[in-house]
Design a protein around this nucleic acid. Structure first.
Lengths: 372, 372
DNA sequence: CTCGTGGATGTTTACGTAAACATGGACTAC
DNA sequence: GTAGTCCATGTTTACGTAAACATCCACGAG
C-alpha cells in the first residue's frame, strides 16, 4: 500500500503518441532509442467516470461529499476510485477554487528553540484545519536561497503567510510579500502594520528581574542577545526599565549571539566581576554557557551568583543547577498565528495590532538570596 | 520593496470600473453597497497581454525567459507585468506541467535535534534547487492530524517525499504514500524497499564504546533510548556487539525516552552502582540528565564516571563538563535526501539501498581514564 | 521578381476540477 | 389527466498556463 514504481499505469503510451513528455530529452540521450513517457498520466475524474459509467461531475460530487447522489451510484463511483487508485489533483482544485489550502512560513533559521517550537505548533494547528505548511527559508548564506524563496512567494502558492522573523529583516532579504496575501507576524514590533502574535517578553523579563531583586540583589547584570535581534532588544529594554523603576543601577550589558559558546565567553567576563551577584540571560543557551563560565571560575550558583534564563527549553530543568527561567508558550503562539492568519484569509481583511501570549517565571535552583 | 498593504498600485481604479482590483473587496465593504466579491481575481497573463497589446503566449514566453521575443516587445511586457503586479499562478503552472516543484517532508515531531537539523538542511537544499518544502506532520495526539496529512498526501501536491521517520510507523499512522511519488527515507532500516539516507550510527557507537574501553574501563553501561525507536535499537545493538567483540561483559541497559528528565531518572540508578565507571548515552539530552544525576549523587565526571553522548547538539560543548559525544552530520543527511529524491524524480526511477553519512567522535571532557 | 527560409508573434488546445446550468423522469396536487 | 415540482444526473464552461501549431513578414538567393 505504500510504494512507488511497481504501480505502472496500465494505459502507458509510447513516446510517439506523446512526444511532449517533460525531460524526455535527457532519457533519449541516455537510451538513444525509444523515449519512455516521462511521467505517467495521473488518474483523473474522467477515468473514474468512464469506469463507473457516470459523468465526471457525479464523480466530483462523490469526491467532495456533496448530497444528491443516490447510494448505489455513490458506491459505484467509490468502487471505481478504489480500483483505479484515484487521487484528486490539488493543482486543478487550486486553480479552480483559487485557494491552495496552504500557509507559507517564512523564517531565517531553525536553530532557535522558539522558531522550532512555534513552527511545530503552526504545523499541527494548520493540519487540524486541513491546511498544509510550506516552509520558506530565507537563508542568508547564498543569494540563491533568497531568490528561491522569492520565487515561490511570487508564484503565490500559499493563501497566507506567517512571518517567523522580524519584519525589517524582510528588506534585507529583498523578499517582498505578494499583495493580497494575509500575514501574521511573530517576533516583531510591526503591530502598526501587521497582525502580530508574540509572547509577552517585557512582562517575562520584568518577572525575572523582579524575582532577583526580591531575593535581595543590589542590581541585576544582563547577558544580552545580539543587537540586531528585536527580541533581544526588547528584553534588554524591559530589563533596563525594571531596574530603573526599582531605582537600581543599570550596568553595561554583556552580549552574546544566543549560543551557549558566546554565553560562556561573555560569562567569563561577568564571573570576573566580584560585584556581580545576579545575571539575567536573554535566553537559556546563553545561561548555559554562563553557568559553565561561573563554574570554571569557582563561583557557585546560586550561592555566589544567581542566574535566570529565558525560553524554558526542555533541557533547562537538567542544567547544573536546574535553571530558573521565563517560560514562553510557543505552542500557543503557533496556534494563534494560524488562527489569525486563517481568520484574515477567510474574511479577506487585513488586521493590525499585537496579541501577547503571557509568559511566566519558572523558579528552579539557579537563583537564591543575595550573598551578604 | 517589502510590504503588503502600503504598496498601492499607482493607477488604482475605482471598484466600479474594475471590480477585480486588489483589495476592492474591502473598499466595497466600506462603501456598504455592492456585496463584495469573495476573492479578488488575480492578475493573469491575459491581463498583462491586453495591457501590453500582445498575445498571452508572448507574455508566457517573456515570463519563462524563452528566446524569440524581440527586445522591445519584452520591455513592453515586463512593463505591463510591473504595472499590474503580475505573479504567475503556480496552480495553473502545476496543472499544466504536472510538477509542483515541491517536496513533502513527513515527520512525527520537531522535538528531536536530528529531525530539526535535517529538516533545516532539506529546506535550504530544496530552495537552492527551486523546490519548496511542504511539512506533513503526522501528529499522534488526534486522529484528525493524521487524517489531515493523509488528505494532503492523497491530493499529491508534492513531487516527492522525504520520510523523517521510520517506515514501519507509517502503517501505524495509516498514512499511505501515493503511488508514483518518489521517496527517500532518513532514520530507518528500509533500505531494501526505499532509498535510505542515514548517519552511520553503528560506527559512531563503535567509536564511542571503543574510546571508553581504550581508556581502561572494564565495560561500558548503556543508557538507551526508547524501544520503539529504530535509531535507539541500532545504537544499542552496536554497543552490544562492540562489547562482545572486545570480550567485555554486557550489562542490562537503562532506558529513557530521549529526554533529559528521563536521563536523570535512569541516571540516578546508574549512579547508585559503584561498578559503573563508563556510560554510553543514546543521545545528548539523556547524557545531560545523566550528568546531573551523577553530580547530585556525588560522583565526579570524568574522574569517577565517564560519559559519552550522541548527536553533538550545539549545547553539548557547554555542559558541565563539556560532553564527549558522537557528531552526526545532519546537514549532509538533509542534502543527500534532497539530492536523492530529486534524482529519482527526474529519472522517474525508484532507487533502493542505504547511504551512510560518516559520524565521528568529538572528545571533550566528560571522558577520562578508568578509576583504579 | 519570386520563392524559400526563418524569426517573431498569434491562435488553439488541453491540463483536472467544480460551479452553473440543463435534462429528464418520477411523483404530487388538483 | 395534466401541470408543476423535485431530485438525480449530465453538459457546458472557466480557471491560468504553455506546448503545439499557424501565420505573417522581412530578407536573401536564384
Amino acid at each position: 500500500m505504500s510504494q512507488g514504481l511497481d504501480e505502472v499505469a496500465p494505459e502507458r503510451r509510447s513516446a510517439q503518441e506523446d512526444p511532449g513528455a517533460a525531460s524526455a530529452v535527457v532519457e533519449a540521450h541516455v537510451l538513444g532509442e525509444v523515449r519512455p513517457e516521462r511521467r505517467r498520466r495521473r488518474v483523473s475524474m474522467a477515468d473514474v467516470a468512464r469506469l463507473a459509467g457516470v459523468s465526471s461531475q457525479t464523480v466530483s460530487r462523490v469526491a467532495n461529499g456533496h448530497p444528491g447522489v443516490v447510494d448505489e451510484t455513490r458506491r459505484l463511483v467509490l468502487g471505481a476510485m478504489a480500483e483505479l487508485g484515484y487521487r484528486p489533483n490539488s493543482a486543478a482544485r487550486a486553480l479552480k477554487s483559487g485557494e491552495f489550502r496552504t500557509i507559507g512560513v517564512i523564517l531565517f533559521t531553525l536553530s532557535t528553540t522558539g522558531n522550532v517550537r512555534t513552527l511545530e505548533a503552526i504545523a499541527s494547528s494548520a493540519a487540524a484545519e486541513g491546511y498544509a505548511i510550506t516552509l520558506i527559508p530565507v537563508a542568508v548564506p547564498t543569494q540563491d536561497g533568497v531568490r528561491g524563496a522569492f520565487t515561490r512567494l511570487g508564484e503565490l502558492a500559499v493563501d497566507a503567510v506567517i512571518l517567523l522573523m522580524e519584519v525589517h529583516l524582510l528588506d534585507a532579504a529583498s523578499v517582498s510579500l505578494p499583495p493580497g496575501v494575509q500575514v501574521v507576524v511573530a517576533d516583531s514590533d510591526a503591530g502598526d502594520q501587521y497582525s502580530v502574535v508574540d509572547t509577552d517578553q517585557a512582562d517575562g523579563t520584568r518577572q525575572a528581574v523582579a524575582h532577583l531583586l526580591d531575593l535581595g540583589h543590589r542590581t541585576v547584570h544582563h547577558l544580552a542577545g545580539p543587537e540586531e535581534s528585536f527580541a533581544a532588544e526588547r528584553r534588554t529594554a524591559a530589563w533596563r526599565r525594571t531596574l530603573e523603576e526599582a531605582g537600581c543601577p543599570v550596568l553595561p550589558v554583556e552580549r552574546g549571539d544566543w549560543s551557549a559558546e558566546s554565553g560562556y565567553r561573555a560569562g567569563l567576563r561577568l564571573a570576573a566581576d566580584p560585584a556581580c551577584t545576579a545575571v539575567f540571560a536573554a535566553n537559556d543557551e546563553l545561561a548555559l554557557g554562563l553557568l559553565r563560565a561561573l563554574h570554571e571560575s569557582g563561583r557557585r550558583v546560586p550561592e555566589d551568583v544567581s542566574v535566570v534564563g529565558f525560553d524554558d527549553i526542555s533541557e533547562a530543568g537538567s542544567f547544573l543547577p536546574p535553571l530558573t527561567t521565563v517560560h514562553q508558550d510557543f505552542a500557543e503562539v503557533g496556534r494563534r498565528c494560524v488562527e489569525g492568519v486563517l481568520r484574515q484569509f477567510r474574511n479577506d481583511e487585513h488586521e493590525r495590532g499585537t496579541h501577547l501570549v503571557p509568559t511566566h517565571l519558572v523558579v528552579r535552583r539557579s537563583t537564591g538570596p543575595a550573598p551578604r
